[in-house]
Every structure is written in structure tokens, then in C-alpha cells.
């Protein structure tokens, strides 16, 4: 593993774009190196999903202080599409319906955006690749003809996110509550897909955002952070998640996050 972090968040503060005050992130520090899997856990309203959205550039949130460096670039200066091309992928907690647009067409457009200027995607190569990826994720190829998330079950939506991740090959995948709304079978299928992708590309980093420990039984994190009240309150190895499972979040209730340098502890 390379020593340089792919993602470096320092003192990040952010608020809802249209609100005057109400900060949600109150100074987040985090470093992720290539190939690392990090999990951020936290109670509802702690800011963990906001962090995911801020990283992807959601227009509903506004960073107010701190910095985010991605692969040496100032991430906060980039548009969402530029962030994607730079290698950030956000697996949505609530994937959005795009009626009338097939998954194949959507993915083709997204892959085309990654082609060098003026070069057209080879449509047959793309189609073969898509089929291969769907087979890898044990999806029926007819799925690609369905309209993006339109009328999908919760499980289908999440699998569609993993398919996109498999096609777009990010350097950092931020998975926002990918486990929410999934039964155990669906969860295993999704986790299996993610694990195949990390095996395939050991340099790919993952930031898992989850409320529950159970996802971490299937996707093993190297580091676990607990987010409380807009800050990372505790960082450690997988044992942190196990402790949380036993103790719950009440240990952290009413607790102001300690001042932390935020970096993940050395592996």
C-alpha cells in the first residue's frame, strides 16, 4: 500500500446550503489510504450521511470550513461530475428514479464521459463489458433494459448501485447506508459484489457509512470510526464496531467529541 492518502479530510465543517446556521459537520478529520476499508458508524443525525453527500458534492450542503484533498486535488472546488471522473463514487442511500432512461443507456453515458476528448465509446465492447459485470454480480442481463430505479425494490436499487460501481471503477467508493432496507439475503448479495470488486482492485478504497454493525460482518473494515454530533468521536479497528454492538450509542450521548487528530490509527 502506498503511504500517501487518497482522501484527506481536515477540519471539515458543513451546513445545509439554505440555512443560515445549523452546522451539521463540526470539524471532521479523516484520512483514507489506497486499498483501505473504513467504516463510519453513528446514531441518526450524527452527520455521517451528510459527510457522504459533501464528499460527492451534493448541492444541498455547503462546506463552511476545513479542506478535503482527493488524490492531491482540492475536492471541494470540483463539480459532482468532475469528482466522479476523478474517482469518487457515492453509492446512494436512496437511489433516485430516472423514468424513461434505461440502465444501459445511463451507464453508457457515464462510461462515455470517461473517454478521452473526441473519442467515442465502442458500443460492442461496452455491451460485452456490461454483460460481464452483470454476470459477475449475478444479475440478469435484462435488468440493464429497465429504467433507472423506476419501480425497483429496495434490494434492486442497491444492486444497481453496485453495478454502477463495478462499471465506473472508482478509486474511492463511499457507500451511504447501503445496508438500509435490505434483508439478510439481499445484504449478502450486495456485500459479495463489493468484495469481488475489492479483490479485483486491491487499490480501491471504501468508506462504509452505516448505522448497524451487521454490514461489517460481510464487508470487513480495516478501521472503524464513530461519528457523534458532527465529529469523529472515536477511531479504532474492527473492535470498535463490536463494542458498539454491545454498548450501543448511549455511551456517546451528550458527549462532545474529543479533540482528535482524526487520522486512522496505524494499521
Amino acid at each position: 500500500m502506498s503511504a500517501a492518502p487518497i482522501l484527506k479530510i481536515a477540519g471539515l465543517q458543513a451546513k445545509v446550503a439554505d440555512e443560515v446556521e445549523l452546522g451539521i459537520l463540526k470539524g471532521v478529520d479523516l484520512e483514507i489510504k489506497p486499498g483501505e476499508i473504513h467504516a463510519i458508524m453513528g446514531p441518526n443525525g450524527s452527520g455521517k450521511s451528510t459527510l457522504a453527500k459533501v464528499l460527492a458534492g451534493h448541492p444541498g450542503y455547503e462546506p463552511t470550513d476545513g479542506s478535503v484533498t482527493f488524490a492531491g486535488e482540492d475536492l471541494l472546488e470540483m463539480e459532482p461530475d468532475e469528482r466522479s471522473l476523478a474517482g469518487i463514487f457515492l453509492a446512494f442511500q436512496y437511489p433516485v428514479d430516472i423514468p424513461g432512461v434505461s440502465i444501459a443507456n445511463f451507464l453508457r453515458t457515464a462510461v462515455q464521459a470517461r473517454q478521452p476528448e473526441g473519442e467515442d465509446l465502442d458500443i460492442f465492447e461496452f455491451s460485452d463489458h456490461l454483460t460481464e459485470r452483470m454476470e459477475m454480480l449475478e444479475m440478469d442481463v435484462s435488468f440493464a433494459e429497465r429504467h433507472v430505479n423506476d419501480g425497483f425494490s429496495g434490494g434492486e436499487k442497491k444492486r444497481n448501485e453496485i453495478l454502477q460501481m463495478a462499471m465506473l471503477k472508482p478509486r474511492l467508493a463511499v457507500m451511504d447506508e447501503t445496508d438500509s432496507g435490505l434483508d439478510i439475503d439481499a445484504l449478502q448479495i450486495v456485500a459479495k459484489g463489493v468484495n469481488k470488486l475489492t479483490e479485483e482492485d486491491p487499490e480501491m478504497s471504501i468508506l462504509l457509512i452505516t448505522h448497524y454493525q451487521r454490514l461489517l460482518n460481510f464487508i470487513k473494515p480495516d478501521f472503524v470510526h464513530v461519528m457523534v454530533n458532527g465529529r469523529i468521536a472515536r477511531s479504532g479497528g474492527p473492535e470498535v464496531a463490536i463494542a458498539l454492538e454491545e454498548e450501543g450509542y448511549k455511551t456517546y450521548e451528550g458527549q462532545e467529541a474529543p479533540s482528535t487528530n482524526g487520522s486512522a490509527p496505524a494499521a
Binding site: I98, R114, Q164
Partner: peptide, 8 residues
């Protein structure tokens, strides 16, 4: 946002 977050 969903579409642009995929690089479109």
C-alpha cells in the same frame, strides 16, 4: 445530482 455524480 444522481446523474452528475456518475460523471455525466
Amino acid at each position: 445530482f444522481y446523474l452528475t455524480s456518475r460523471g455525466i
